[in-house]
Amino acid sequence: MSNVDDTAKPVASGTVEKTDSHFHAYGKNRLGLYLTLPAQILVLFIALFPLLMQLYISLTDWTPLTGVRWPQAYQLWSGLANYADLLDDDRFYGALWRTFFIIIVAVPIEFFLGLAMALLFMDEFPAKRLFYSALLVPMMIVPAVAGYMFFLLFQSGGPINQLLSLALGTKVAISWLSDPDLALAAVIISDIWQWTPLMFLILLAGLLGVPSEQLKAATLLGASPWQRFLTILLPKIKAIMVIALAIRTIELFKIFDTLYIMTAGGPGVATETISVFIFKITTQELVWGYVAALALLILFTLSVIAGLAMYFLQRKKREVAA
């Protein structure tokens, strides 16, 4: 806001005339690209180097214990054997399936809960700010702490069972974390508790961006709340929904800390996800080439998810522009 009399700012006048900012921006971008090129190359190298290294190692049976320095890993060349092993590994498929299962169950629940709360928060109600702050607390807790918290909560003599006992009137002693089926449920519940607020926050931002006049106009034209949601809100926050879903899907694919503290992937492999699987085989079995192959596969999967989301957003943008 300094120097308002100065000449340096275009005026936003009532009658919008075409300015050249777009064209200028284009020219400047070009120049900007040249100026930042060295830095860009450096960043590219930093990102590309580990990737290439990983690719290289994934084609060998190299581990630090072999006594060979990694650049000489070609001495242990194994070709695509790691990939072949991977595709034959039932433990890998199990971990992959469990990861997807957690995503398929947790993300939609988080999404709908978050959306419902966000819709609730569009209206005024008493103590709204207090609720708002309270809702964001779970997200701010360090995942490891959250994991430990849930570990305590879900003990067979823990608070959750005590609450259930009180509610049902009989003694309940469910061994949440040691029953293979329930352990996964406990993990999912903890994730929902911790990450629904993020969904809520992103979706609320989207909803608040919808012009309130349009909602009022729709109401005055006879639209019911449900119709307003379907015809105005939903189309307007589609893009942000995709972003929210993509973020949570990618994040959840990497779920590790909370889960590892709660169950360490157990009992057995009942809650072993891809990340836990990688952690275990890296630290316990030390098959680095195998891990590298696995990591690349995951990277590929996540890229596909992100790519799909990007594609959807781009198409949306084109529709708006057309």
Binding site: T7, A8, P10, S13, T15, V16, E17, T19
Partner: peptide, 18 residues
């Protein structure tokens, strides 16, 4: 002049913004 008739552009040229 009506909108888009070039009024604002002339001002910007005068000011030296363009």
């Amino acid at each position: 002049g009506p909108p888009l008739s070039g009024k604002t552009t002339i001002l910007r040229l005068m000011l030296g913004l363009d």
